[in-house]
Design a protein around this nucleic acid. Structure first.
Lengths: 245, 245
DNA sequence: TTCAGACGGATTGTCGGACGATAGCGCCTT
DNA sequence: AAGGCGCTATCGTCCGACAATCCGTCTGAA
């Protein structure tokens, strides 16, 4: 008995070949890809085929076209790209706000607890900056949201764990719409957010791991309360809009 | 001052249009996509352009070709696809085994703790099955690994949180190579794994949330010890091989 | 009637080539 | 040296073609 042999189309073999080169760092981040014509002759296939392969790489973020530029350059799929991919997948699974909240409530406090031990002065400065910006510039809901997310990212970064950073990103993106609704709809939200953020900042400054965890956890539980106050159901599906990027 | 207006190429507009239809469920999971020719006439663009758009959708897993078939069908990017994307991204970021282990150590015990409350009889059966298979069929490292991963998945599923399930997947995939090394290199590993799995199973059966958390945590810490015994550095980068899929 | 195999049309994969738009680069001027 | 100009390379899109093969249908035999 032979296993069913799978014949990959040329465009897939091609994209895989290039992907491999990128993964093994033969093609490095920032390096421009050869031109389509060049690839076409090098691989001995038609340019259309090359282009199909390039579209594959482009859509997973392994190559990117810088704005207003022609050549494709090798890139690493950044946090934004991952957030996009994962977010889309989750929304297609009809994931609920509750599930996302739970996950966030799981990741963020742990990250903060870890971060309390490892945090550097620079980390602290970044968190403080986000905190400051929120206190000073939260009248507009959209801007307030931006600062809140920045705070989360800065705190998570203290953990020194890039996996957590990457994991966090889609969660934030998925929470964003309802979070905005909540901030807009609950008058006392800003005050409470400020307080919690300050506590978290203090805990991180004092390298108090447990306090950091606790306050981050409370912070997130407060979101939940806010949702109730703003009459936002946690059972609704997460919203998703395809980002043009 | 005008903002720089971005002109998207046709193939991107196209893939975005189709993606939108999928996201809003106008095109449903399992439904076949129109023919390339049909799309070509419907959108009024050349077939080559359509194909480039399709490659984009295909590579993010929104459409798939079933084995030995011609038409593309709409699909949701499943766990495997996500694991692939995220895993590749993480490996390109030179993430270390330690970071992945930490993340796993963060997610899995929490999932188990949650699961202890929510778990159903079916969940339990699935976990037990994985446990059984491991005890009975762990001579071969590869197969042992398969069962271990199944155990993780089954336990995480009890949490009823699909975000966690999705988050877990890339972690497992990234741990796999070193985990295999460890299991192969540490004689007492199998026994310890069996014990820990049994304890976790018992805790979940008893709906003992804290025990579940604790034992899962110990289980994972045991991995770390195993790594030391097998002389596997936690500071090494995670391995990654592009899966042909 | 049912099932295997033959047949033809539809659909995909790949190719050759073409052409307009424009990004990138060197040259020239000031 | 800085800035403007024009050329060329490269990309985006299109036209059309053809082989391979999947799929549905039709036919003949059991």
């Amino acid at each position: 008995m032979f296993p069913p042999l799978r014949v990959e189309p040329t465009y897939r073999k091609l994209s895989l070949a290039i992907e491999t080169r990128i993964l093994e760092r033969t093609l490095r981040d920032g390096e421009p890809l050869p031109t389509e014509a060049e690839l076409s002759t090098q691989f001995g296939v038609h340019r259309s085929t090359v282009r199909e392969a390039l579209r594959e790489l482009e859509s997973v973020g392994l190559v990117t076209r810088r704005r207003g530029t022609k050549r494709l350059v090798v890139t690493r799929p950044g946090a934004a790209r991952i957030a996009d991919t994962v977010g889309r997948a989750l929304s297609l699974e009809d994931v609920t706000v509750l599930e996302v909240w739970e996950s966030l409530h799981l990741v963020a406090p742990a990250a903060a607890a870890n971060g309390a031990r490892r945090r550097t002065a620079a980390d602290l400065a970044a968190i403080e900056a986000a905190y400051q910006r929120f206190t000073e510039d939260s009248a507009d809901t959209t801007r307030a949201l931006v600062h809140m997310l920045a705070f989360f990212r800065a705190v998570t970064r203290t953990s020194g764990n890039r996996v957590l950073m990457l994991t966090l990103e889609p969660l934030l993106k998925l929470m964003e719409p309802t979070l905005a609704q909540m901030v807009a709809g609950v008058p006392q939200a800003r005050t409470r957010i400020t307080t919690a953020q300050r506590r978290i900042l203090e805990a991180l400054t004092a390298r108090d791991s447990e306090a950091a965890r606790t306050w981050m956890s409370r912070y997130l539980r407060d979101f939940r309360r806010g949702y109730e106050l703003a009459n936002i159901s946690l059972d609704q599906r997460v919203a998703w809009r395809s980002s043009t990027r």
